[in-house]
Amino acid sequence: MSPIEKLTTISHKLPISVLEDIYKRITDWLASGGTEEDPYIKQQLRYAQHVAMHYKTNRG
């Protein structure tokens, strides 16, 4: 599963503002010639996972 596919599976756990920001960053990256498997995309996934975990913890 690609990082973007993984991101899609947790997207419902993220605040909309975070999700919009991540998708904008990924879209810009891909438009500039990057690929879905680049470290930058994987970093965005790690960030999303961290936020999802933190958001879940704080929402109870």
Rank of each mutant, 00 (worst) to 15 (best):
K24N: 15
K42C: 05
H50F: 04
I16S: 13
K42R: 10
P3F: 13
Q44A: 05
T27Y: 10
V18I: 15
A31T: 14
I10W: 03
I10H: 02
I4A: 11
V18G: 05
H54P: 00
I4N: 10
P15E: 10
D21I: 14
H50P: 00
D21A: 15
Y40I: 07
T27I: 09
M1L: 14
V51Y: 00
I22Y: 10
T8Y: 07
V51H: 00
H50V: 04
Q49W: 02
K42Q: 11
K56G: 03
P39N: 05
Q44E: 09
Y40M: 09
T57G: 04
T9E: 14
I4L: 15
T27K: 10
S17P: 07
T35I: 06
T8L: 07
R59L: 08
Y55P: 01
N58L: 09
A31D: 15
H50C: 01
L19Q: 15
S11K: 05
Q43C: 07
A52D: 01
E20S: 14
R25G: 12
R46S: 07
Q49D: 01
Y47L: 04
T57A: 08
E36Q: 11
R25F: 08
T27A: 11
A48Y: 02
E20V: 14
K56C: 01
I41G: 05
Y40W: 06
E5C: 12
I4Q: 11
V51A: 01
T35P: 03
S32W: 12
T27G: 09
N58F: 06
T27F: 11
L45S: 01
G34F: 01
Y40P: 04
Y23A: 09
L7I: 01
L14R: 08
S17Y: 11
E5R: 15
K6S: 07
R46H: 04
Q43Y: 04
D21R: 15
G33M: 03
I22F: 09
L7Q: 01
Y23K: 14
P3H: 08
A52M: 02
Q43W: 03
N58A: 07
G33K: 03
R25Y: 09
G33V: 07
Q44Y: 02
T9Q: 10
M1G: 15
L45Y: 02
G60Q: 12
M1D: 14
S11G: 04
K56P: 00
Q44M: 09
H54S: 08
I4K: 11
S2F: 08
V51D: 02
E5M: 13
P39M: 02
P3G: 08
R25T: 10
S2R: 09
L7E: 02
I26E: 04
H50Y: 06
I16K: 15
H12A: 10
L45M: 03
S11W: 06
P39F: 03
T9G: 02
T35M: 10
